[in-house]
Nucleic acid binder design. Structure first.
Lengths: 206, 206
DNA sequence: TAGATTGTTAATCGATTAACAATC
DNA sequence: TAGATTGTTAATCGATTAACAATC
């Protein structure tokens, strides 16, 4: 077991999850690999291959039971667990994330925002702490994920602090790649990269 | 000419751009494919292959002149042009984007925010308009890119309005895939997908 | 049972890497 | 010139697709 699953497959999992949730909301009970594939503009082969990496979720001659499939994907993605997050940076992005109510439904709880020199006590009901209070905070609280929503120039130093504090997972919004050593998982959202891809496609439109 | 460049290559371009800007800021004058590759944790072959898709930017025995290379990538990405954007949705994400000062430096100007029922006149200095003012607005203003920052349930309808209004490019932050026909370019940022990939990796950590 | 559809092996395709002649 | 490094062709690798036996 614990076969290594390629990055390409992992990146597709949230997409399957989105589509399966949509089917569930529409009240559908089952879906075949072919149905799901044509919905998602991929091949039925890919759907079956992808799921096959994690077990046997379907039934020959029937297809996949949507409730069961959703449950399996939730487990694969680790969304059946609860995570505590803290956010570094109370600027535009940090504040937006603090205000997003969707996280808590998926098990991601925001414990606080950290800023070098806070100018307010809280934002969207999330408490703001000075960054130098972090080690104190960690005595009382578990933190699974640190979100970096600072300016690019501060991101590396913040990452260093996070790693020193023993936090093992980082969700990074600063447009810079962080080297946190091999024991820390860093997942990046490079918003400007996406905008540049759009700009590229606009410039090369047929 | 106009050879079709694979999606994989296109998605790497912004990353090259980031690293080249960093090298420029450090005052470096030239870089070899090998240097750049080891910095970026890829192979020198890939660097050369990727650039080769767009022309001959280097010089044998020397490497790549950083200023020139940056200029070429700027042109390839279309960042030498100016774009007008409008944002749909004045919630957390919409407001954060409106407040982000970085866009304007890269040539992306935010002309306004549209919301069904505005409760304020402006946010971060960007004017807020009611959505039904869109067609009026377009008589006076050019819009290259519409940003969708609404709730998921409203995104499809907003996309429809955008397409009807003749806007040809969409930067979508709502966690739903929009079918806007083949003449409209849609670039998505699925933030929760990224968080789920992080969650996956946390759950499957060795 | 007959039809449908999975799980999985084999074949294909495309992307990455290696190699090297060209040349600065 | 000799050394370095590109641009590009060829080889390899991995991911996607096709095919089909198993089976519900």
């Amino acid at each position: 077991m614990a076969k290594v699953v390629s990055e390409a497959v992992v990146k597709r999992l949230p997409r399957y999850y989105r589509y399966i949730k949509q089917l569930e909301q529409k009240g559908k009970i089952k879906v075949s690999s072919l149905e799901l594939a044509s919905l998602m503009n991929i091949t039925a082969s890919q759907v079956r291959q992808d799921f096959c990496n994690f077990g046997e979720f379907g039934q020959q001659g029937y297809g996949y039971d949507i409730k069961k499939l959703k449950g399996e994907i939730v487990k694969i993605l680790g969304l059946n667990k609860k995570y505590n997050m803290i956010i570094f940076g109370a600027g535009n992005i940090g504040s937006a994330l603090a205000g997003y109510k969707g996280f808590i439904n998926e098990g991601f709880n925001i414990g606080g925002i950290f800023e070098v020199e806070p100018t307010k006590d809280e934002i969207h009901g999330v408490k703001i702490y000075p960054t130098n209070y972090l080690f104190e905070y960690l005595k009382e609280n578990t933190v699974d994920i640190a979100v970096i929503a600072t300016q690019s120039k501060d991101a590396e130093q913040v990452a260093e602090t996070i790693v020193k504090a023993g936090i093992k997972n980082i969700w990074n919004f600063a447009p810079i790649e962080l080297d946190c050593g091999k024991n820390v998982i860093v997942e990046n959202i490079f918003m400007s990269d996406s905008l540049y891809v759009l700009s590229y496609k606009m410039s090369h439109r047929k």
